[in-house]
């Protein structure tokens, strides 16, 4: 069977050559190992660096995939900063949501949300706000803004658009080789 190479198509070398300007931001960053800390050393347009970091941590806890770097969660969360800059109600929802998470974290674990060490404990905190507009909107947006990143698809074994390669008629549409004979 033809299987999928899960590695990113964009290498660090490509990035250093400067050709990466044409490559998607997430792919560039993935190739260079960008982390939450590097991405948001400074504040965003509307949200502070700690607020953004909390949202990114929350994003990973909502859809945890251990084989993907923070950069994909950052890419998924980043548009919220711009939305907050243009809409006071959105900003209030995000600021209050993060504040609530941190406050719940302090009550139960004596620290901020991002510093609660175990995922299972952070998930308990998320379950506590699952019914809120804040959680609902972040999750509903994330299910698209995370899984619709094309650079992620090979990591999930999905090949995306196929028409330009002539479909799968000569590329393994019927190449399964492990089924029992019937």
């Amino acid at each position: 069977m033809r299987v999928i190479d899960p590695r990113s198509r964009y290498s660090r070398r490509t990035f250093l050559k400067g050709a990466a300007s044409a490559a998607p931001a997430a792919a560039i960053a993935a190739g260079t190992g960008l982390s939450i800390t590097d991405a948001w050393a400074e504040d965003g347009q509307a949200l502070t660096a700690p607020q953004l970091k909390t949202l990114v941590k929350m994003a990973r806890d909502v859809y945890p995939h251990d084989f993907i770097g923070d950069v994909y969660y950052i890419t998924a969360i980043k548009p919220w900063d711009k939305k907050a800059a243009g809409d006071a109600a959105v900003k209030a929802m995000l600021v209050d949501g993060v504040k609530r998470l941190d406050s719940d974290a302090h009550d139960r674990f004596k620290t901020t949300y991002v510093d609660v060490p175990w995922e299972v404990d952070r998930v308990t905190l998320l379950q506590g706000i699952e019914h809120t507009d804040f959680f609902g909107k972040i999750r509903a947006d994330l299910v698209v803004s995370l899984y619709n990143q094309h650079e992620l698809w090979p990591k999930f074994g999905y090949e995306g658009s196929s028409a330009e390669y002539g479909g799968y008629i000569n590329r393994g549409f019927n190449d399964i080789d492990w089924l029992p004979k019937v």
């Binding site: 998930v123 999750r139 992620l152 698809w153 999930f156 074994g157 999905y158």
Partner: peptide, 25 residues
């Protein structure tokens, strides 16, 4: 992958959900 995420179990999140997504291929 994009529609599987949206329609497999709408509203679901956490490791049960993401384990299914990781089994996609």
């Amino acid at each position: 992958i994009p529609f599987m995420a949206a329609f497999l179990n709408p509203g679901a999140w956490g490791r049960t959900f993401t384990a299914s997504m990781e089994a996609y291929p």
